[in-house]
Amino acid sequence: MPFKTLALASLLVVSIVAPAAEKPVTPQKLVIYTSSKEPFIKPIFEAYTKATGVQIDFVSDGGPVLIERLKAEGPKTPADLFMTVDVGNLWLATEAGLLGSFKSPTIEAGIPAPFRDPQNRWIGLSMRARTIFYNPSLVKSEELSSYENLSDAKWSKKLCLRTSKNVYNQSLVASLIEHRGDKKTEEIVKGWVKNLATDVFPDDTSLLKAIDAGQCAIGIANTYYFGRLVAENKRNWNIKIFWPNQSGAQADGRGTHVNVMGGGVVASSKHKEQAVKFLEWATQAEAQQMFASKSYEFPLNPAAKKDALVAAWGDFKADAMPLFKAGVHQKNAVKLMDRVGFR
């Protein structure tokens, strides 16, 4: 009996002490807070684990929830990386001091400057455009020109929009505020609301389906939703893509509004080096290609190839507005949409 007890006790002691006695090695584990949905982001994390052996634990929830969580956890946070699907939330995280700056020549070589934070606290990993889609049996592409033009009375009862609760519309309106100012933007958005063919949609996918069915002649949606729709159901969709604001003087020809999925290193992470390594991996052509093809987005590293389906949409000029501005104007954009009754 006493022997057994002794054996057990020593086993216990050994099991407690042994790990502590080991040399500290580089941690083979990263914790990521991400607002990407699990089904899309998990394969990417798994690819990283396969390539490097580093395990990734992640939480997937809305950007604001994760930001509040990081704030509350403060220096005790287990998170190493913060990733969101919208630049507004990245900007909010930097405003709250949650992201630390990092420097890496690999990243700088991979991702063009407009898609990186000027102070190196976050980078974009893939790009999507929020552009105009139209039903070719109802509209000719010559009739389309710009986001601003959608407020013209000729589109009365023809335009479809997603709910203003969605961050992508907020960023789009924020970009209008940046280029056109508050007052002009309010007029434009008021015009959009006047032209609505039906109530706003809960998501981009049902909006695209409504364009296909002819309920709407035109609508605004993110490119990858269209990619997914076509990839999942290979029938002849009655939807065409249009790149607005491609020509004209100044703001008229500023380019199509784009947004990024991106991430940064959490300021109080204990594994910053590892976290930067993950970002370096994610910015290289190979990973970029995988990222973009899985989600039908545009890779940011020019060396990476687009998915065939995405490449078929052709090239376009993207709005060069520094992305963080979308975050700066977001609150104003929401208030403006409230005022004009854009639900």
């Binding site: 809305g62 950007g63 604001p64 509040e68 909010l92 709910t163 203003s164 609760k165 961050v167 907020q170 109530d199 706003v200 949609f201 809960p202 977001q330 609150k331 929401v334 208030k335 639900r343």
Partner: peptide
């Protein structure tokens, strides 16, 4: 209510937090 696009207290709370950035 979110699916049917009806604005109630719950959606307003969500929007105020998420979009107006004010917890």
């Amino acid at each position: 209510v979110a699916v049917f696009n009806v604005d109630t207290f719950t959606t307003a709370i969500y929007r105020t937090w998420y979009s107006l950035q004010s917890l």
